[in-house]
Amino acid sequence: MRPSLVLAAVALTVAALLPLTLDPAGYLIRVLTVTLLFAAMSQAWNIVGGLANQMSLGHAAFFGIGAYTSTILLVNYGLSPWIGMLAGAALGAAFAALVSVPTMGLRGHYFALATLAFGEVMRVIANSWPSLTGGPAGISVPFAPDSLLMLQFKSTLPYYYLMLAALVLVTAVFVVTKAGALGYRLRAVKENPDAAEVVGVDTARVKTIAAVMSGGIMAALGTAYAQFTFFFDPETVFGLGPISIRVALIAILGGIGTAAGPIVGAFVIIPLEELANSWLSAGTAGLSQLVYGILLMLIILVQPRGLVAPVEALAARWRTRRAR
């Protein structure tokens, strides 16, 4: 058995048992749940951002579509969020395909800024269509007793396992994609798009598939988020800062294009934000955010290729030595 698998299994076991030692409706478990959710979101972003190397700054569009789809179906038709999640994922995937059309030929910064505009378009639409979305006032998931079918619980514990399962699933999708034929094609496109075309890779198709997968997953996570927080408004789910930039930041800080990157990134950033907030926010306004920002810059200055990079370099050296 490969050591990485063993470690993943150990980590998963710990993650599965850890909450048993915590207050099931407490603060720690909430922070961990949010961390897992953001790790999963970042991992979904990683499929486009890491594998296809398309720096999307508009992933909030898909996230919000998922959150709104399931919640609107639940509020208006009483449909289970599980069905809503599927519907949302389908819509998110379709929207990703739509976004792919005009952004296909764009590279680098232009792609980033075009996707950013798509995210903002969705936010404006959600804000200006109150009869459907509730508008800027936001939308609430109706209060219901604990039920797996309706995906609603009083305690945070079930959400923890939901997010953990989501993270494991998305990571599995990422790993399989990366190792599979699609991953090789994406790598070819990333290394040299022109050369990839020449050897017969349909770059447009490959990029679209990655975008659709990523968008669909992101939308499904949007539903999970809606059920977890019970209330959201357009700014919360379609926001540039709270979602789009954040998920990209997490993946980049952890290590873009690696399976571990988004997980490491999320487990650094989210707790860091929380700690800065809980230690400093009672004092002077702005201090906690300032410290958080400085730490962010420090990490990027010290480790511009992501936190995973040095560990990887070490591991690579270790492997070469052992192979000798």
């Binding site: 720096m55 980033a112 990209a248 930041l249 980049i252 873009i256 990027i300 511009p304 290729r305």
Partner: peptide
């Protein structure tokens, strides 16, 4: 550094 690091 990689452009993504610059942006962030």
């Amino acid at each position: 550094a990689p452009p993504v690091a610059q942006i962030f």
